[in-house]
């Protein structure tokens, strides 16, 4: 099943959790910005405990940044992901991962779009007319992964609503001008209009100045 959830959580199904002794909560924040042609930029960030940081670095630190890329690519295999950026902060034990994914939302035609989130048990809320948020917890060995997820759709989005697909997965449907766009004004016409007004004012001033000679 190809759902956006694959692009978010799977990277954290990491083996370090098998090695953990006591239950710990891993909090991750993910922002996904969907563009007007259905591609998206994902930004994931998290703060780890000392033991998690050691295990994380064992996998991804110290020159192993390419492993982050590989892990995401494998976890999100039904998608095409690219343009990776990994920024660990050793002092704060925090990290940020950025990557892009192609074709993450589907265009249905007539300016209608649908994004399949891929979870049945989430309770998404609208943050703005074009963004949604939900929090999802997932037990992973001894760790509890808690993901705070925000999807932001194009700014022209309207009529955003939640639905479910045939399998009960949460979907987000929205409208966004795609094949046509409402343009507020024609640049060339505006330029021509301002030019004519300017010429008119100049002509009027010239007439006033020369009226005695006429």
């Amino acid at each position: 099943m190809k759902t956006l959830q694959l692009l978010i959580l799977s990277i954290f199904i990491w083996q370090i959790t098998d090695a953990q002794i006591k239950p710990e909560t891993l909090q991750i924040k993910t922002d996904a910005k969907v563009d007007s042609i259905g591609n998206a930029l994902f930004t994931m960030s998290g703060k780890l405990t000392a033991s998690q940081w050691i295990a994380w670095n064992y996998m991804y630190g110290g020159g192993q940044a390419s492993m982050v890329k590989r892990t995401i690519e494998r976890a999100a295999s039904p998608y095409y992901v690219y343009d990776f950026k990994y920024s660990p902060n050793e002092m704060d034990r925090t990290f940020t991962i950025e990557y892009k994914a192609k074709g993450v939302v589907e265009y249905l035609g007539k300016n209608k779009w649908v994004a399949t989130i891929g979870s049945k048990d989430i309770q998404p809320v609208k943050l703005t007319p074009n963004s949604v948020n939900y929090v999802q917890s997932e037990a992973n060995g001894n760790a509890i992964l808690q993901n705070n997820m925000t999807f932001t759709f194009p700014s022209e989005t309207t009529n955003m609503d939640f639905d479910k697909d045939e399998f009960g997965n949460v979907t987000v449907k929205y409208n966004c001008p795609t094949e046509t766009a409402v343009v507020s004004g024609d640049k060339d016409l505006k330029t021509a209009g301002y030019s004519l007004l300017g010429a008119g004012v100049l002509a009027l001033l010239a007439l006033v100045a020369l009226r005695k000679k006429l």
């Binding site: 016409l189 505006k190 021509a192 209009g193 301002y194 030019s195 004519l196 007004l197 300017g198 010429a199 008119g200 004012v201 002509a203 009027l204």
Partner: peptide, 9 residues
Amino acid sequence: LLIGGAGVL
């Protein structure tokens, strides 16, 4: 000119 400019604008 002024009328035309206003119209085009």
